[in-house]
């Protein structure tokens, strides 16, 4: 059901774990299925210097969280904000249709983190 890349990211997620003293946190959840995703950011001169996530969710929720942190790392906030769910899906190769919303949740969590950063800085 899952592609090799999805399984890789699920088994060895990148940038996983709570961040100490983050500049901002964004949270997104899917009330329909119950998944919750948190993204932590450290920002320096408008660029994402460090990023990490915590996700309570299924295989694809964890894999998309891992992938979006990889995509956003070292990007400017403006660039990171433009990452779409389709970018996440494409990078993972493939997601089962019923799981594509997980990528949307990852995008929402990142957007929220950026938005929270911009509000407080």
């Amino acid at each position: 059901m899952y592609s090799k890349k999805v399984i890789q990211h699920f088994q060895n997620p990148k940038n996983m774990g709570k961040m100490k003293n983050p500049d901002s946190v964004g949270e997104a959840g899917n009330p329909q299925c119950g998944d919750v995703m948190k993204i932590y950011l450290k920002v320096s001169v408008g660029r994402i210097k460090d990023i990490s996530f915590e996700t309570m969710g299924c295989v694809s929720a964890i894999a998309t969280s891992s992938m979006i942190t990889e995509l956003a790392k070292e990007r400017t906030l403006a660039e990171a904000e433009k990452i779409t769910y389709q970018d996440v899906v494409n990078e993972l190769g493939e997601l089962p249709p019923v799981k594509v919303h997980c990528a949307g949740m990852a995008v929402a969590a990142l957007k929220k983190a950026i938005e929270n950063y911009c509000k407080s800085h």
Binding site: M56, G57, C58, A61
Partner: peptide, 14 residues
């Protein structure tokens, strides 16, 4: 608590 069912089933299956 704190461990989503599909993820548990998936890892067990592996």
């Amino acid at each position: 608590a704190g461990a989503e069912g599909e993820s548990v089933v998936f890892v067990l299956s592996r």
